[in-house]
Design a protein around this nucleic acid. Structure first.
Length: 549
DNA sequence: CGAAAGAGCCC
DNA sequence: GTACGGGCTCTTTCGT
C-alpha cells in the first residue's frame, strides 16, 4: 500500500496502526529536486530509530497520503526535523499537507547548536553520535549530477528514510539536556520558526525602476574607476594580488595579510596611502561590490526572497540565500511595502544597554536611566574622555563604545577612527576603561570566568554559550561579546513572537535585522511592551516610511 | 571543479 | 608587538 516501508512489521498493518494511534513523536525528512529547486520528490517519516516509511510524491502523490497526512496535521504529534525551516517550508506544498501543523515542532539542528556542537550538519552529527545509521549528505549525492531526479528512486528513498531515522535518534539524545538546560529558550526558537518560514516565502516587493536607475549609475562609476586602475598597469582591478603588487612597486608600504600569502590591500590600509592609485582601487571596489552583490542579482526579479534561519551558536537570527540583513543603507529604498508603508521598530543602542545591565556601570546607568546628557551615551563618553563634545569627538567616542563590545584592540580603533598613531589609540582605550570603571570590571570578570570554564557568562535569558577552542585572546573577546550578541538575539525573537500573538493583522512582519523589526503596513506597535522584554527598559523607536530605510 | 583567501556590506 | 564579535557573498587563486 505505501510505497516503501523500512522495518520489521507488516507495512499495511503498521501504517494503519500509526494512523489509528498517533504516536507522540515522529521525525520527517523531505527530498527535493535540488537545494535550489525546491520541488518535493518525496518525504520520509520515522516512527522510531528502526521503523520508517517513505512516500514518493513525484510526479503524483499516492492516494494513501491523505491518511498519513493526518499525523503531520495533528498538533498532538511532535514533528522532529533537522533544519525544520527547510522541511516545514516545503511540506505544505504537497497534496493533503496544506494544513501542516507547525505548533509542535522540534529541530535537532537548533538543539545541536544549543548544546555547543560546532558543526551541525546531520551527516556530521550522525557520524559523531551514531554508529548504525549511515547518513549521506545531499551535496555528496548530487556530485556530478544536475538534480536528485537523476538519482535512482530506490536509493533516494533509502537515503531519506535513513536521514529521518538518524534525526529521531538525535532527538532522543538531545531532548533530555535541552529540557534540562534550555527549555524556555528552545521553545522560543520553535515558536519563531513558522514566522520565519512565512517571512521567507512572502518575499519583498522590489522597486525595479529605482533598482535599474541605481544599476545604470553604478555601472558608469565602475567603468570610470576600472579605467583608472587599468591605467596604473593592473590587468584585473578585482585582483587584490595584482593591486598589492603594483602598489608596492610604486613605493607604498603594505603589511601582509593574515595568512601572510600576499600584501594586504584592505580599505583600512589603502585609505592611509598618499597615492592616486589607492583611491582609484577603493572607488572601483566600492562600486563593483555594490553593483555585483546588491543590484545585478535582482535584475528581472519582482520580489526579493531570502531564507531566514536560526543560528544558535550565539542565538541570533540570520538571513541567507540573498542575505537581506547586509543590504547597504544606500540601497534599501528599493525595497517597497505591499501595504502602503513600513512600520519599523528599532531597539536603540541595544548592545550598550545590555552592557550597562550586565555590568551595572554607574556612569552608564546615569546616562541611560537618569537621562544625563539627554541619554546620549556617545556625547557623555566624549565629554568624559576629551573634556568637551564636538561632532568629531562624539563620533570617535561612538566608535570606541561599540568596539568595546567586540573586544577591540588599539589597531582596530586605529583603523576605524583613522588615527594612525597606535599609542594614541591605546591611551584612548585606557581612558575608556577609566571612564566606565564598572564596565571595565565586568569585562575583566567575564574574561577570567570564560577562560576558566570554557563557557561564556549567561545571557539575559540565562543561556550559556560555549566558547570555541582557540587562542586565549580570541576566547577573551568572545567571552565579552557572546553574552551581548546572544542577548540581542533572545530579545528580538521574543519581540517577534509577541507581535505575532497580538494579531496585528495578516502576517505582516516583513524584515528583521538583529535589533529591528519592519512590518509591512501601518501597524500599531506595542512599544512599551517591547521595551520591557529584556527585563529592563531598552528604548524602541518607531518610524513609518514609504520604503525600507 | 571546489576550497581557500581576500575583500566588503550589515548589526 | 599587540587578531574586532556575529553574519553572507562576491571574485580570484590555487590545488586536486
Amino acid at each position: 500500500m505505501f510505497a516503501r516501508y523500512y522495518g520489521n512489521g507488516d507495512p499495511t498493518e503498521r501504517m494503519q496502526y500509526f494512523i489509528a494511534n498517533p504516536p507522540p513523536v515522529i521525525s520527517v525528512d523531505v527530498e527535493t529536486v535540488s537545494i535550489a529547486e525546491r520541488i518535493p520528490l518525496g518525504f520520509a517519516i520515522a516512527f522510531s530509530a528502526d521503523e520508517a516509511v517513505y512516500i514518493s510524491v513525484y510526479p503524483t502523490a499516492p492516494e494513501e497520503l491523505a491518511k498519513l497526512a493526518t499525523l503531520l496535521c495533528n498538533s498532538q504529534v511532535r514533528k522532529v526535523a533537522h533544519n525544520a525551516i527547510f522541511d516545514l517550508g516545503i511540506l505544505p506544498t504537497i497534496p493533503h499537507l496544506a494544513q501542516l501543523d507547525r505548533s509542535n515542532i522540534w529541530d535537532t539542528n537548533v538543539a545541536a547548536r544549543y548544546l555547543g556542537r560546532e558543526f551541525t550538519d546531520l551527516p556530521y552529527l550522525a557520524e559523531l553520535e551514531l554508529t548504525d545509521i549511515k547518513v549521506t549528505a545531499a551535496r555528496d549525492m548530487l556530485k556530478g549530477k544536475k538534480s536528485m531526479l537523476e538519482i535512482d528512486a530506490e536509493l533516494l528513498a533509502d537515503k531519506c528514510q535513513r536521514d529521518a531515522r538518524a534525526c529521531l535518534m538525535l532527538y532522543q539524545r538531545y531532548l533530555p539536556p535541552i529540557e534540562a538546560q534550555h527549555k524556555d529558550n528552545f521553545a522560543v526558537d520553535m515558536k519563531v520558526m513558522p514566522i520565519l518560514i512565512d517571512m521567507s516565502q512572502r518575499g519583498l516587493l522590489i522597486d525595479q525602476t529605482a533598482r535599474a536607475a541605481l544599476q545604470q549609475r553604478y555601472s558608469r562609476e565602475v567603468d570610470f574607476y576600472k579605467q583608472q586602475v587599468l591605467g596604473f598597469g593592473v590587468e584585473n582591478p578585482a585582483s587584490s594580488q595584482q593591486v598589492g603588487y603594483m602598489l608596492a612597486k610604486r613605493g607604498n608600504f603594505l603589511p601582509l595579510t593574515k595568512s601572510k600569502k600576499q600584501l594586504s590591500t584592505r580599505v583600512g590600509e589603502l585609505e592611509f596611502l598618499d597615492d592616486p592609485m589607492a583611491a582609484a582601487v577603493l572607488g572601483y571596489r566600492h562600486y563593483s561590490k555594490f553593483k555585483n552583490t546588491y543590484l545585478d542579482p535582482l535584475e528581472g526579479e519582482d520580489r526579493f526572497f531570502t531564507e531566514y534561519y536560526l543560528d544558535t551558536s550565539v542565538g541570533r537570527l540570520n538571513s541567507r540565500d540573498r542575505n537581506i540583513q547586509n543590504i547597504p543603507l544606500d540601497a534599501r529604498y528599493m525595497i517597497l511595502p505591499d501595504n502602503g508603508l513600513f512600520t519599523s521598530a528599532d531597539y536603540s543602542q541595544e548592545h550598550l544597554y545590555i552592557l550597562m545591565h550586565f555590568s551595572q556601570d554607574r556612569a552608564m546607568k546615569q546616562v541611560y536611566e537618569e537621562g544625563l546628557f539627554s541619554g546620549d551615551i556617545h556625547s557623555y563618553t566624549a565629554e568624559q574622555m576629551f573634556g568637551s563634545v564636538t561632532p568629531d569627538r562624539r563620533k570617535l567616542a561612538k566608535t570606541i563604545n561599540y568596539a568595546i563590545c567586540y573586544g577591540a584592540t588599539p589597531k582596530t580603533i586605529s583603523e576605524q577612527s583613522k588615527i594612525r598613531d597606535r599609542t594614541v589609540c591605546s591611551r584612548l582605550l585606557d581612558n575608556w576603561f577609566r571612564t566606565f570603571k564598572g564596565a571595565a570590571d565586568w569585562i575583566q570578570t567575564v574574561q577570567r570566568e570564560g577562560l576558566r570554564s570554557g563557557w561564556a557568562e549567561p545571557t539575559l535569558f540565562g543561556r550559556r554559550i560555549k566558547l570555541p577552542e582557540e587562542s586565549e585572546d580570541g576566547q577573551r573577546r568572545k567571552a565579552v561579546n557572546f553574552p551581548i550578541l546572544g542577548s540581542d538575539g533572545e530579545v528580538i525573537k521574543r519581540a517577534i513572537i509577541r507581535c505575532s500573538e497580538l494579531q496585528l493583522g495578516p502576517p505582516v512582519l516583513a524584515i528583521t535585522v538583529h535589533d529591528s523589526l519592519h512590518f509591512d503596513g501601518d501597524i500599531e506597535v506595542p512599544v512599551e511592551e517591547l521595551e520591557m522584554i529584556p527585563g529592563f527598559k531598552i528604548p524602541v523607536q518607531v518610524t513609518k516610511t514609504l520604503h525600507w530605510e
